[in-house]
């Protein structure tokens, strides 16, 4: 088990390296540069800027220097756009915010989604089932960029219950709408996955054995069916969590929460190379980490899986 863990972590290094190289090449290949403005700067100024940031070097050298400074100093470089701020500072500032509302959204999506899915499967083809299916389809077609303005409209402008944006260190009134907007569509997917896999498991032969033993339905569902029914949900959780981190693009835009999401888009538009690379590596690292966690969770749930 431990050796498996080390192996997986070792494989993560080349994975991330490939991510860095491919992203860097793509970024470099995209037209435009970080210092392009509407009125072109004099060529001498451009040359100086390029020299200062090492952009005059061949691509291979640039990538090598970038990776080397990460490995030796954990330095992801300065932002080209936000003066006096390094990428490390930008991420250290924005990521905790994103992680806070991301984690709450994750928790809400899993708890509500799984409960709704189980309830629908256990009461298959009843009003409750139809209600749950209806809600999850409705939530699925309401992506966060539609949810966010609707929530603001209702809770801020009409009812005046919640602030329309801001963060204030993550106090709950500022947390509610971002979490709802971010979690709704994930919750719907989790509910759908849970429902269909629970329905399948409830038809399994071992569930019939459990019922033949005269176990109450609650025990059949939670003790015998829940674990296997959650396996497909678990495999969805890795991509879902990363999806919530990248989904923060919309949240930061609508609620001015100041998370990392705003940089995903802005850095690309601004050709702010170091910031763009930094958030890309962050998302990539989280993906690798969560896929590993999901695999470990799998082994914990299913005794037939051993590493």
């Amino acid at each position: 088990m431990l050796s498996y863990l080390f192996k997986r972590l070792a494989v993560a290094v080349p994975t991330l390296l490939v991510l860095v190289i491919v992203s860097y090449v793509l970024m470099y290949a995209a037209p435009g540069g970080p210092f392009d403005t509407e009125r072109a700067l004099p060529p001498e100024v451009m040359a100086n800027l390029d020299r200062k940031y090492g952009l005059d070097q061949p691509l291979v050298v640039q990538i090598w220097r970038y990776v080397a400074s990460i490995v030796t100093d954990f330095d992801f470089g300065p932002s080209f756009r936000y003066q006096d701020q390094t990428v490390n500072e930008i991420i250290a500032q924005g990521f905790p915010v994103t992680l806070t509302y991301g984690a709450w959204s994750f928790l809400a999506a899993v708890l509500v989604g799984v409960s709704l899915g189980i309830a629908a499967a256990v009461h298959h083809n009843t009003l409750l089932d139809y209600f749950a299916v209806g809600v999850s389809i409705g939530a699925q077609v309401l992506p966060n960029f539609v949810m966010a303005p609707i929530l603001t409209l209702v809770f801020t402008l009409w009812l005046g219950w919640l602030p329309g944006g801001g963060w204030q260190g993550g106090e709950w009134p500022y947390l509610v709408m971002p979490v709802i907007a971010l979690s709704t569509s994930f919750m719907a997917s989790i509910a759908r996955i849970t429902r269909s896999s629970m329905l399948e498991v409830l038809n399994a032969s071992f569930i019939r054995t459990a019922r033949a033993k005269g176990l109450p339905r609650r025990r059949v569902v939670f003790r015998h069916a829940l674990k296997p029914a959650l396996l497909p949900v678990v495999s969805y959780l890795g991509p879902a969590f990363v999806g919530m981190i990248t989904g923060s693009v919309v949240i930061d835009f609508f609620f001015a929460t100041g998370g990392i999401g705003q940089f995903f888009v802005n850095s690309a538009l601004n050709r702010d190379y170091p910031v763009l690379m930094g958030v890309t590596i962050l998302a990539g690292g989280l993906t690798v980490l969560f896929n590993l966690l999901v695999d470990l969770l799998y082994a914990w749930i299913d005794p037939r899986i051993r590493y």
Binding site: A204, S205, F206, R208, T209, A210, R223, H224, K227, P228, I301, D302, P303, R304
Partner: peptide, 8 residues
């Protein structure tokens, strides 16, 4: 298939 594979 009649025994639950997830429980001892």
């Amino acid at each position: 298939t009649a025994l639950n594979p997830y429980l001892r």
